[in-house]
Write a protein that binds this DNA or RNA. Structure first.
Length: 254
DNA sequence: ATGGCTACGATCCGTAGA
């Protein structure tokens, strides 16, 4: 089973890229973030024509998440139970007995800002949610835009980013608190080339200079980590005209 | 040099992303 996560930065604008990518990469399950559209505007017909069903939770302008699958999506749930939030950032579904949780973690804007505090509160709530979900679903995966670069090797210029939002110690501690639940960062299950990133700034020719961050991740519970055969980032959609600033993170399970 | 793109929804600029 091939799983992927992609922050598309507007599903409306990126729909042609997504449809092409589905045909080429042939993933079984795809988690999308930053749909930036209401559920009534979700392009269900185009997604179905590509061979995928979808569960989605969207809103106007901001946020929005979806899970696409080429097979049944069961027990769909949205949001984090007990964490009241207008922002559509979480959706879960069961696919081939695997619990798939798609997350768009808050950006945090700047260390010390109100949005940064929200980010840390949000991660604490996510941790509680995943604790309960893991008890119910041993085969569990969390895919999404985490907006945290876990280590300095996930950052193109650690010196320039030191202490900034996405790499600050409290954010990295929140990330490690998820790993402490027994979840594995699928990317680090394998030897990887250096300087692999999943996001590049639109400005300053970030992609051309490979000035990026690895902030899009796939976490696997222990039974799934044992089945993981490959982990990659697909840079190809970032080379297209009008790309998303993120590229798909991919994980293959035997 | 604190900017630099891109998307959105409001108007032709402000908010947000990372």
């Amino acid at each position: 089973m091939k799983l992927a996560s992609w922050n598309v930065n507007s599903l409306k604008v990126r729909l042609p890229h997504l449809v092409d990518w589905l045909a080429n990469a042939k993933p079984d399950v795809v988690c999308l973030q930053e749909l930036k559209l209401e559920d009534s505007k979700f392009p269900r017909a185009e997604i179905e024509a590509a061979g995928y069903g979808a569960a989605h939770s969207g809103q106007k302008t901001y946020n929005g998440v979806a899970i696409l699958a080429n097979r049944a999506l069961d027990d769909v749930a949205t949001g984090i139970p007990g964490f009241a939030d207008e922002q559509k950032r979480v959706i879960a579904a069961t696919v081939s007995r695997v619990r798939v949780i798609c997350v768009y973690c808050p950006n945090g804007q700047a260390v010390g800002s109100e949005k940064y505090d929200y980010k840390l509160r949000w991660f604490a709530a996510l941790r509680e949610y995943l604790t309960a979900e893991l008890a119910r679903h041993p085969e569990l995966t969390v895919l999404g835009d985490f907006n945290v670069a876990p280590e300095d090797r996930d950052v193109h210029d650690p010196k320039a980013w030191e202490g900034q939002v996405h790499v600050s110690e409290p954010e990295r501690a929140a990330w490690r608190a998820l790993l402490a639940l027994g979840l594995k960062d699928r990317f680090r299950l394998f030897e990887q080339p250096e300087k692999i990133y999943s996001w590049w700034d639109y400005r300053m020719m970030g992609f051309r200079r490979n000035a990026g961050l690895r902030i899009d991740h796939v976490l696997l519970s222990a039974p799934l980590a044992a089945r993981c055969t490959a982990s990659t980032v697909d840079k190809s959609p970032r080379k297209l005209e009008r790309p998303s600033d993120h590229t798909p993170a991919i994980c293959e399970l035997a």
